[in-house]
């Protein structure tokens, strides 16, 4: 496993981050990756701790997000995976990249489409995780309406093109795909200048 910040300039070229932002992001990565085991890698427990502060609950979405960050499927995140994934969440990232990431997030079985059963599973699971209770009739009604809007080909599933059309009509569905914090990462983690490898 690669350790440490090996090539900030390469990562800056291949993401929306500047070299300084990559170095500042590495300060955040060090903090998160040393929370449980100080091994320069983020495991799922550390990811969950960083998100929720207290290790409180099972979360379908933490698992899905972690799996999407974990492009090498090793069960742990190196800095490169962390930086490349967070790049999609930058305010300057391409909307198409955000749409692609969000589609994969909801395509639980990774079949290339989001099926009705998956949507119902996500609604039921996330409502249960947050302690909310809606009757099955209400949930079915909401899912019917969602598919009326999204499933323009009427085949009972939402493909990538339909997902794109849906989110362009409902931009709120991409709200969580942009993190304003990433714009201010160098001021949030000014200590990166002490470890900088480059003259910016």
């Amino acid at each position: 496993q690669p350790r440490g910040l090996e090539d900030p300039e390469l990562l800056a070229r291949e993401t929306v981050f500047s070299v300084s932002e990559i170095e500042a992001l590495y300060e955040l990565f060090k903090r998160i990756s040393s929370a449980v085991i100080d091994d320069g890698l983020i495991n799922k427990e550390e990811f969950q701790l960083a998100l929720f502060k207290i290790n409180k609950k099972e979360s379908l979405f933490v698992d899905r997000v972690f799996d999407l960050f974990d492009t090498k499927h090793s069960g742990i995140l190196g800095f490169e995976e962390f930086a490349r994934a967070l790049s999609v969440f930058h305010p300057n990232a391409l909307v198409d990249d955000k749409i692609e990431f969000s589609f994969q997030l909801y395509d639980l079985k990774q079949q290339g489409f989001i099926e009705r059963q998956e949507v119902k599973q996500m609604v039921v699971t996330t409502l249960a995780e947050s302690g909310m209770n809606l009757s099955d009739d209400v949930i079915e009604n909401i899912i019917n309406k969602t598919f009326e809007q999204a499933d323009t080909k009427h085949d009972g599933k939402i493909d990538k093109e339909e997902w794109k059309n849906l989110v362009l009509r409902h931009p709120s569905l991409l709200k969580n795909m942009t993190l304003q914090y990433l714009k201010d990462i160098t001021t949030t983690f000014p200590s990166f200048v002490f470890h900088s490898q480059v003259d910016d």
Binding site: L28, I32, A50, L51, F52, K53, S59, L60, F61, V65, L86, F89, L105, Y106, V119, M122, V123, T126, L127, E129, S130, M132, I142, I143, K145, T146, Q149, L166, H170, S172, L173, K175, N176, L179, Y181, I185, T188
Partner: peptide, 24 residues
């Protein structure tokens, strides 16, 4: 009601990565 199933999912799942940037 204009509520979309995906709005419910993203709201109730707490899918919000801003926690990563907040100190304990």
């Amino acid at each position: 009601c204009n509520l979309n199933a995906f709005d419910i999912i993203s709201y109730s799942s707490g899918f919000d990565l801003s926690g990563l940037f907040e100190e304990e």
